[in-house]
Amino acid sequence: MSMLHTVNKSPFERNTLVSCLGHATAGSAILLIEDGVYGALEGTAHSDLLRGALADHSVYVLGPDLNARGMTDDQVIEGVSVVDYGGFVDLTEKHEKVQAWL
């Protein structure tokens, strides 16, 4: 049974990403959207959090939300895939369930 987790809060402001990672079982996918995209960036105080998750999870970040916030694809932690809205839809179809961490 595969799960897609979405996180839409900044890791600096809420513990949403920490909580998500604590509950996401190995093999599940994680998609960062809205203010959650800040968690995907290299060189921040929370970069290690997500880097650690890459061993057990495939991690995605929504490109349009990144660009809106003035960030580019090359600022994202290596191993995290940038997807567009089409990719978002593909991910939800590929997984049986979606758990939205708000």
Binding site: S10, F12, E13, D35, Y38, G63, P64, D65, N67, A68, R69, G70, M71, T72, D84, Y85
Partner: peptide
């Protein structure tokens, strides 16, 4: 301060999210 510093980030481009870029 805190995430508020992100308000001033250069290069914001909101075309993809359909919101007004107020930067």
């Amino acid at each position: 301060l805190d995430d508020g510093v992100y308000q001033l980030k250069k290069g914001q481009d909101t075309k993809g999210i359909g919101q007004k870029n107020f930067s």
